[in-house]
């Protein structure tokens, strides 16, 4: 793949910005347009940009964790977020909320964790597919 200094340099600065943006999308999702799914996609796009600029090995190194592990972690968080509803004796997957408002994040409740799970899962899946397609070109 062609190497571009401009793109490579730009991606280094864009990646954190895009990741913050994706996280922002995830958190505001409950009240404004956004959410875990689109947040995960934006985060994946951020890494994809980095991969286009710097190659798949740099991107994998930067990600640190295996995408498969991110997928599993996402699914695990989503499933764990269903448990509090069972513990307090509500119907399965009823949202359980803490009655405190946190700065930046807002209210904390199981749907938020569920959304975080979706976010991680979408990120992991997209990157898994992109990386495994790209790796084959060795």
């Amino acid at each position: 793949m062609m190497f571009s200094v401009i793109l490579s340099t730009a991606s280094r600065y864009l990646l954190p910005l895009l990741l913050i943006f994706s996280f922002f999308l995830l958190l505001r999702g409950h009240n404004e347009p956004g959410g875990g799914f689109v947040g995960g996609l934006v985060a994946a796009a951020a890494y994809a940009l980095y991969f286009i600029a710097n190659g798949v090995y740099e991107a994998e190194k930067l990600l640190k964790a295996e995408p498969i592990k991110i997928i599993s972690l996402g699914l695990l968080i989503a499933i764990l977020s269903t448990i509090p509803s069972i513990i307090i004796g509500q119907n399965f997957m009823t949202g359980v909320w803490l009655d405190i408002n946190f700065p930046v994040i807002g209210k904390i409740g199981t749907p938020l964790f569920f959304d975080v799970g979706v976010y991680l899962l979408v990120l992991g899946i997209t990157l898994k597919i992109i990386f495994s397609l790209a790796e084959e070109d060795k």
Binding site: P33, G35, G74, G95, P111, F114
Partner: peptide, 30 residues
């Protein structure tokens, strides 16, 4: 659902069990 974004509240609260099924399928597809 304690959220103003109706679409998202449907996804992660009202119909969350559907979403759970979907993301599981996605993970298996990956």
């Amino acid at each position: 659902g304690k959220g103003r974004n109706v679409v998202n509240v449907i996804l992660v609260d009202f119909r969350a069990i559907d979403t759970l099924g979907e993301i599981t399928v996605l993970a298996i597809a990956a």
